[in-house]
């Protein structure tokens, strides 16, 4: 039993959302939803928390600013002082306006790449990774709700499958997974 999984397929995003709501109201735990585009408003229904990637990006941004400041200070003031074009490198603060552009760029660089990298890692996205959407049509115009009986021990497999069939599904697949 624990190895089984139900894939309920819909052909409309609003119907998927309504069906998911109905199942959740009934007490069914939905393992995942696969869709060709983000369905707005489904995250709270199936219990997905707001991602914290924004915070990650902010952390990377601060790191970037600090790194840029340290680097500039080291190269321009500690390691090799110069007086270029009347802009002497003796005081970081006095030459600050010159350094703002690079500090800003480096901040953005770190924030964007740091977050993008985290995003790839968290989603398991790398070149050549195998996809695990249950049906190739879920990247086209089908929406699949995945229900795992192991998450829903209070219902029998038949009950689950019967309830899913009361929603406007277009296909249902019961699959044994390894």
């Amino acid at each position: 039993m624990a190895d089984k999984v139900i894939y309920a397929m819909y052909d409309d995003d609003d119907e998927t959302k309504d069906a998911a709501q109905k199942m959740v109201d009934k007490g069914i735990h939905i393992a995942d939803v696969f869709s060709p585009f983000p369905i707005h408003g489904i995250d709270p229904i199936i219990g997905i928390k707001e991602t914290r990637l924004g915070i990650v990006s902010f952390m990377f941004a601060i790191t970037g600013t600090m790194l840029a400041m340290i680097t500039i200070r080291y190269m321009m003031f500690v390691d090799w002082n110069m007086n270029i074009g009347g802009k002497p490198n003796f005081a970081f603060l006095e030459n600050m306006p010159s350094f703002i552009p690079i500090m800003f760029e480096f901040t953005v660089l770190c924030a964007a790449h740091g977050m993008a990298f985290t995003y790839f890692v968290r989603n398991g996205l790398f070149p050549g990774m195998p996809a695990h959407n249950p049906d190739p049509r879920t990247t086209d115009d089908r929406f699949v709700v995945e229900i795992r009986p192991e998450d829903n021990n209070q219902f029998s497999f038949e009950e689950l499958s019967a309830f899913v069939k009361t929603t406007p599904i277009v296909e249902i697949e019961e699959k044994v997974i390894q």
């Binding site: 995942d32 939803v33 869709s35 995250d43 996205l125 195998p130 996809a131």
Partner: peptide, 11 residues
């Protein structure tokens, strides 16, 4: 990159 389109990924 192995994109599957699950809800969390879209989030």
């Amino acid at each position: 990159f192995g994109w599957s389109g699950n809800a969390k990924a879209w989030n």
